[in-house]
Amino acid sequence: MAAGGDHGSPDSYRSPLASRYASPEMCFVFSDRYKFRTWRQLWLWLAEAEQTLGLPITDEQIQEMKSNLENIDFKMAAEEEKRLRHDVMAHVHTFGHCCPKAAGIIHLGATSCYVGDNTDLIILRNALDLLLPKLARVISRLADFAKERASLPTLGFTHFQPAQLTTVGKRCCLWIQDLCMDLQNLKRVRDDLRFRGVKGTTGTQASFLQLFEGDDHKVEQLDKMVTEKAGFKRAFIITGQTYTRKVDIEVLSVLASLGASVHKICTDIRLLANLKEMEEPFEKQQIGSSAMPYKRNPMRSERCCSLARHLMTLVMDPLQTASVQWFERTLDDSANRRICLAEAFLTADTILNTLQNISEGLVVYPKVIERRIRQELPFMATENIIMAMVKAGGSRQDCHEKIRVLSQQAASVVKQEGGDNDLIERIQVDAYFSPIHSQLDHLLDPSSFTGRASQQVQRFLEEEVYPLLKPYESVMKVKAELCL
C-alpha cells in the first residue's frame, strides 16, 4: 500500500493539533497551500530580480507567473513527485505547466533550498508574528487579574506546605514575570531571523556568478533584492546548502521555554482548584465526569500541561538535527523538520489560546482563602504575639514557653481530632496574655502579614508589564474561544 493518505478522510490519521486544537490561522501558515504558494512567490521574486539585473526574462513571463501564483494543481504535483521522487522539481514542473512561456526560467540558477529553506524562514517569521500578540493578550488578562487582587491576602506555599502570606495578585505576578520573559525572547528570536537568500547549491553562489558572467556586484544585488522582497532586513552571508540548523534550535528553545512557563502556571491553577481557592472557567453544560456528576475538573489547565510537556520535548529534535548536518548538509534534517517545526508552533498556539481562555474567566473564592488563612495564621502570628507581650512588660522566655504549650495543644486538636485551630481562643482565655487581649485582632490582621506584596504588584505592572504590552494595544480586544 502506498504511503500517505487522504487526510480529510475519517479513515486516515490526522494530527489532533490540526484537527482538534490549533487555530485556523496557525494551521494555514503550515498548510501545503501556504507552503507551495510561497515557493511560487519566491520563484517570481527571483525572476523579477534577475530581470532587473539584466537576464533575458520578459515582462510577459513575469506576468504569467504572477497570474498563476494561486493556480496550484495539487493532484498534478503529487503525481509528479511520485514520478520524480523530488518535491521541488515536482512543483517546478507543475508551475511550468500553467506558465508555459515562463517554464524555462522558473528556478533559474537556484537549488531546492532556495524555495525550501527560504519558505521555512518566512513561515517561522509569520508563525512567530501570530504567537506574539496571543502571548501579549494572556499577559494582559493576567495583569488585569493581578491588579484587581493585588491586596487580597492568601496563604503562600513553599514545598506545598503553608508559608508566609502573600497576595493573590502577587502570586499571579510570578506567572506574568515568566511570560514577559517569554514574550521578550519570542520577539528577540523573531527579529534575529535572517533570510537564507540566493546562495546556490553549497552556499557559494557559483551558479549565479556564472549567470551574471562573473559580476560579483550583481550577485550581491540579486541576494539583497530577493531578501528585501521577502520582507527581511538581512540575509546570511555564510550558508551551506541550507541555512544553519542552529536557527531551528533557537526558535524551538524559546517555544519550549514558553511551554515550561505555561505548565507551571496551569499546575498552580490545578492545585488551587483542589484547594477550592480558584477555578478555571466551567461552562453551564460542561460535564466533569461521566460517573461523578459533582466533579469540576480543571480540564483546560490539564490540557495545557499535557501539550506543554510535548512542546518542551520537541527542542531535542533540532538539537540532534543540527549535530548531524555533515559538511554542507545531509538530508537527516528533512523529514524531522517537516514534523517538529509545525508541531512546535501548533502546540504553542494551542496552549496560548487555551491559557487566554482560562485567564479571561478565572474565578476566585475569597471566603475559602480566608478560612485557610484562619487555619494557619495563628501559628504564624506567634512571633508577633511574643513581641507584643514583651512590649507590655512580659518575659520573652516565659511567653515563648506559654505559646509553645498552647500551640501544641491547638495542633493536637487540628491533627488528632480534625478540629479547627483554636490557638487564639486559648490565648484569649489565658490570664497571662490579658495585657494584649485587646491587640489580638490587630495582630491577626492578614494584611499585616503580606509585606509589600501589593506595592510590588503595582510597581511591576507599571514599570515592566504595561510598557512591554504597549506595541500590542491594537490587538488586545480579541477574545479566545474554545470549541473543545
Rank of each mutant, 00 (worst) to 15 (best):
A2R: 14
A3I: 15
G5R: 11
H7V: 11
H7F: 10
P10Q: 15
S12V: 11
Y21W: 15
S23R: 11
Y34P: 01
K35G: 05
F36L: 12
R40K: 06
Q41K: 14
W43V: 00
L46M: 07
A47L: 04
E48D: 06
A49M: 03
E50H: 08
Q51V: 08
Q51G: 07
T52G: 12
L53N: 07
L53P: 01
L55W: 07
P56W: 07
I57A: 04
D59S: 11
Q61I: 10
Q63M: 13
Q63C: 11
S67Y: 13
S67T: 11
N68F: 09
N68Q: 15
M76D: 12
A78E: 12
A78K: 08
R83P: 09
M89F: 15
A90V: 12
H93A: 14
H93F: 10
F95K: 00
H97E: 09
H97I: 14
P100S: 12
A110I: 05
T111M: 03
C113H: 00
Y114S: 04
Y114A: 03
D117S: 02
D117P: 00
I122L: 14
I122R: 01
D129P: 00
L131G: 07
L132K: 11
L135A: 08
L135N: 08
R137T: 15
R137K: 13
I139V: 12
S140P: 05
R141I: 10
E148L: 09
P162S: 08
L165D: 01
T166E: 02
V168R: 02
G169I: 01
M181T: 11
L183D: 03
Q184M: 11
N185V: 08
D191W: 09
D191F: 06
D192C: 12
D192A: 15
D192S: 11
L193H: 02
R194W: 07
R194Q: 08
V198P: 10
T201Q: 02
T201D: 03
T202D: 08
G203I: 01
A206D: 03
S207M: 05
F208W: 05
F208N: 05
L211K: 02
L211S: 11
F212Y: 07
K218T: 08
V219W: 01
Q221P: 03
Q221E: 14
K224A: 14
K224Y: 14
T227Y: 11
T227S: 11
K229R: 07
G231H: 12
G231R: 08
F232K: 01
F232L: 13
K233C: 12
Q241K: 03
Y243I: 09
Y243V: 15
R245Y: 01
K246L: 02
S253R: 05
L255R: 02
S261V: 04
I265R: 02
I265N: 05
R270S: 04
R270M: 01
L271Y: 04
L271Q: 07
L272H: 05
N274Q: 12
L275P: 02
K276I: 05
P281W: 05
F282Q: 07
E283K: 15
K284P: 07
Q285C: 12
Q286N: 01
I287A: 10
G288N: 02
S289R: 00
A291Q: 02
Y294P: 01
K295H: 02
S301D: 08
C304Q: 07
C305V: 06
C305E: 01
H310C: 07
H310V: 09
L311C: 01
T313N: 07
L314R: 09
V315H: 09
M316I: 11
P318F: 03
T321A: 01
V324I: 07
V324R: 03
W326Y: 10
W326G: 04
F327P: 01
F327E: 06
R329D: 00
L331A: 03
D332Y: 00
D332V: 01
C340D: 05
C340P: 00
L341G: 14
L341T: 14
A342L: 06
L346R: 05
T347H: 07
T347W: 04
D349A: 12
D349T: 10
L355T: 09
E360A: 15
G361P: 06
Y365L: 07
P366R: 09
P366N: 09
K367D: 04
I369E: 03
E370R: 13
R372M: 05
R372T: 05
I373V: 10
R374Q: 04
R374W: 06
Q375A: 11
L377D: 03
M380V: 02
E383Y: 04
E383R: 01
N384A: 13
I385P: 04
A392D: 08
S395T: 06
S395E: 07
S395I: 02
R396L: 05
R396T: 03
H400M: 05
E401H: 13
I403T: 08
R404Y: 10
S407N: 04
Q408P: 04
Q408T: 14
S412R: 12
Q416R: 09
G418M: 05
G419R: 13
D420H: 11
D420P: 04
N421P: 11
N421I: 07
I424H: 12
E425Y: 13
R426L: 08
R426Y: 09
I427M: 11
Y432Q: 07
Y432V: 08
F433N: 04
H437R: 08
Q439V: 12
D445K: 09
D445Y: 08
D445N: 13
D445H: 11
V457K: 05
Q458T: 13
R459Q: 14
F460Q: 02
L461C: 15
E462D: 14
E464N: 05
P467V: 12
P467K: 11
P471N: 15
P471C: 15
E473Y: 15
S474V: 15
K479R: 12
